[in-house]
Design a binder for these strands. Structure first.
Lengths: 344, 344
DNA sequence: GTGAAAGCGCTAACAC
DNA sequence: GTGTTAGCGCTTTCAC
């Protein structure tokens, strides 16, 4: 096994003290140029690698960022956001630890605790659909570990948040459906525990209202399981006395499944029923028909959340730094799942 | 900020020594029942959380597992494998750090170095498509950090590997195409730097041979960029003098794109051209037509790789433990993208 | 600019 | 069983 060198080894060889080596390595201003040069050279020569554990223990701070997301699979959004987070983290010298809550509160709590225990410098979290209590986040905050929520936030706890304009996205896509001439709209919502479900629902409702539609008649079916209730939902839509002619799904994945089940039943899209999703997953463009969706700046959410987190983590006066609540814009992408041929 | 208690605090309050507290907390056999009980109670009361940094530094070992994968997004396979890894890690008390190489060797090297520097207990790696040098893995091994390769392996370096039977999967799906009556088969391969590309290619070729086909005529087009060359590939397939009637794509994502482009050109699937993928991504079942694919035990790969890694990490005689080369089975899933209606 | 010394919070001999 | 003593490899006062 290869010998692992320490600052001590460098110090001995250079006949200087450990502290000077330590300072030189960190580019501390009051180490002479020559000393630094010598230290770096020797470090290179020995292939010295700083022991981050020791460094962190001594400095009582780490270069770790903990990320907790509901799930990596199935949701391109999180993968994208993660890329943004990792880009920023890398730039600023942080390492990212990613955990999945699997949409379970208990898992989220466990992961946050484990991360806090690993003395992460900060926490980036997208809440699970079960999360309705925030003690675990408070624990982190009490330990002086900043928390930034991204995409799925809450107003139940005061932390910085970076989300997208779910409300406007839903409002706009619903409006798009109305303007395309669809008359009897349905919405497949997500669990109402999620802020994003609420906002998308509200956007849908308000768009109906603003067009003078009777919202009482609007068909809304709540899919608590974000990926598995589509079949049942389709059955319900089709069994309505006044069948909807368009359905806005709260996620792309839901839309994909809905389309499959509709097609299986011989229903033409968008002629018999239009279907729209939400998220801007690239797969929507590859489907047949291509699916109208609401694009989110996923990568950018990650970037901004990470930047903010690191700012808070490195600030020595978090009090006056305060919290931010950044809401990034969404944009609708109308495609053939909602736009009838020859209709334009 | 909430006070963070240490074993020292517990020791003082209980009037015993730090070491006893440390031992009790780790459930060391030779601490009396009563002492343990008292320690646990006090730990609970103070909401004591072990400082993992200090623990790891002192014990010269960590509870961290580093994972490096090409990309999380776009490939359900990795997300699934990751879940398997995380399940095992959790059971055994490890924390998982996930990094993406973005299919770039340099990034892979950087991530491995960073992970080694964080003193991970072991490394789980799925090689990037650029990886043709293995010094970074050797560095880890030299530091006594075990490495287990999963899915994308190599025979260039001696480490344990958990892969799937890519060869047989490709062989079987090609055979399936032949038995369905397709006569002129094409293969869209991945970059030949990847072991999986090679094996899938070889399986394809050998299946042709075993059916007495002329492999010299077989159309093989190599897509180095795993997700972007599909359009070009389709053009090339269609411009062949003897147009292929079936194409086996080395990945599901490739198949999805190929299907889209074929449809855009008015080609019927599978009547005019059959298309098969590889990976068993759940999305293949939701597409229209449903895509024939080769299922991989993604979750299980993660589980087995993680189990083996932890075994190696915890072994005190790695020499005699040796290496394993586990190859998990694949299974073809014939669907309508290759099975003509009324043909059965 | 550099060094000495103390200590981060824990583990691990070794003694009793 | 339990305590004592040394560290793990680094950072950080505080002198000089």
């Amino acid at each position: 096994m290869a010998k692992v060198y320490t600052i001590h080894d460098i110090a001995i060889r250079l006949n200087i003290s450990k502290s000077t080596v330590s300072r030189a390595l960190r580019n501390h201003p009051d180490v002479s140029k020559d000393t630094k040069a010598a230290v770096f050279e020797m470090a290179e020569k020995l292939n010295y690698q700083k022991n981050i554990l020791a460094s962190n223990l001594a400095s009582k701070s780490t270069n770790l960022i903990g990320v907790v997301i509901p799930e990596i699979a199935r949701q391109h959004f999180f993968a994208q956001a993660l890329s943004g987070i990792q880009k920023v983290a890398k730039e600023k010298g942080y390492i990212v630890m990613v955990c999945q809550s699997n949409e379970e509160l208990q898992e989220e709590i466990n992961q946050v605790r484990a991360l806090v225990n690993s003395r992460v410098a900060g926490l980036l979290i997208s809440l699970s659909k079960e999360t309705d209590t925030f003690g675990h986040l408070q624990e982190a905050l009490d330990r002086d570990i900043p928390v930034v929520l991204f995409d799925r936030g809450t107003d139940q706890i005061e932390v910085s948040q970076v989300t997208v304009d779910d409300y406007k996205g839903a409002f706009d896509i619903t409006n798009h459906l109305i303007h395309e001439g669809y008359d009897n709209l349905a919405h497949l919502s997500g669990p109402m525990s999620l802020s994003i479900s609420q906002k998308r629902y509200q956007g849908f409702i308000d768009a109906l209202k603003s067009s003078g539609k009777n919202t009482a008649e609007a068909i809304v079916y709540q899919c608590d399981n974000l990926s598995l209730d589509a079949c049942e939902a389709v059955d319900r839509l089709l069994s309505q006395k006044k069948k909807p002619d368009a359905v806005f799904c709260m996620s792309d994945y839901m839309a994909i499944q809905v389309i499959k089940h509709l097609k299986d039943r011989g229903i033409k899209i968008p002629e018999d029923m239009a279907v729209a999703g939400f998220a801007g997953d690239p797969i929507t463009e590859l489907m047949d028909p291509q699916i109208s969706t609401v694009e989110q700046p996923a990568y950018d959410i990650g970037v901004q959340a990470a930047k903010r987190l690191i700012m808070e983590a490195e600030s020595d006066d978090r009090e006056t730094l305060g919290f931010i609540n950044r809401v990034l814009p969404t944009a609708i992408i109308p495609r053939s799942s909602t736009v009838k041929k020859h209709s334009n």
